[in-house]
Simulated assay, not measured.
Amino acid sequence: MMNKRVLVNGACGRMGQEVVKTIVNDTADELVGVCDKNNEGKDIKKLLSLPGPEVIIEGDLLSSIKKREVDIIIDFTTPAVVMDNIELGLSNGINMIVGTTGITEVDLQRIDKLACDNDVAALIIPNFAIGAVLMMRFAAEAAKYLNNVEIIELHHDQKVDAPSGTAVKTAELINYNRISNQQNNIDEIEKLPGARGGDSNGIKIHSVRLPGLIAHQEVIYGTEGQSLTIRHDSYNRKSFMPGVKLALDKVMGIKGLVYGLEKVLD
Rank of each mutant, 00 (worst) to 15 (best):
K263C: 09
V120F: 08
E190S: 13
V160A: 10
V8C: 05
G10W: 02
G260P: 07
I56Q: 00
D26A: 12
I86A: 10
S227F: 10
T77A: 05
I174M: 01
N177Y: 11
G253I: 07
N181V: 13
L108M: 07
V55H: 00
P51C: 11
Y221G: 02
E141R: 13
L47H: 03
K250R: 15
N39E: 12
I220L: 15
Y259T: 05
E153Q: 11
L134Y: 03
V81Q: 01
N25V: 08
Q109S: 13
L88T: 15
E190Q: 15
N118Q: 10
S200Y: 14
E224F: 05
T78S: 13
I203Y: 00
M252S: 14
N184R: 11
N184F: 13
K169W: 08
Q109R: 12
T22P: 03
V19A: 11
I23G: 00
D249N: 15
G198C: 08
N118F: 08
T166R: 04
E69M: 08
E150H: 05
Y145C: 09
G212A: 11
K113W: 05
G13N: 12
K238M: 14
N3E: 12
C116L: 15
E141C: 06
E69V: 12
K144H: 13
N95T: 07
T223K: 06
M15W: 04
E18I: 10
I57T: 06
G93W: 07
A247M: 06
N95P: 05
V133I: 14
P126T: 00
I23A: 00
I254Q: 04
A195E: 14
V34T: 03
K4W: 06
V24I: 15
I254V: 14
T229L: 12
S180M: 09
L90V: 11
N9V: 12
A142K: 07
K263V: 06
N148W: 06
V106M: 08
G33L: 04
S63M: 09
L7G: 03
Q182R: 12
L134F: 10
M83S: 06
D60W: 08
I179H: 12
K42T: 12
P211D: 07
E87W: 01
C35H: 01
L90Y: 01
E188N: 07
E153K: 01
V6K: 00
V264R: 01
F76Y: 14
G52Q: 13
I56G: 03
D187K: 09
K204P: 05
I23S: 01
G33P: 03
Q183L: 09
G194A: 08
N201V: 11
N95K: 11
V106C: 05
G52I: 05
K42Q: 15
R137M: 13
N25K: 15
G243F: 02
G256C: 09
E141T: 11
A129R: 00
V20I: 12
Y259A: 02
N9M: 10
K113G: 04
L192K: 06
L173R: 12
G13A: 09
P211W: 03
E153S: 13
G10T: 04
P126V: 07
L90S: 01
K263S: 14
I174H: 03
A122S: 13
K250F: 06
V244N: 00
E87M: 14
T100F: 01
I130G: 00
G131E: 11
K144F: 09
A167I: 08
A129D: 13
T78A: 07
V208C: 09
D161A: 15
V120T: 06
T27I: 07
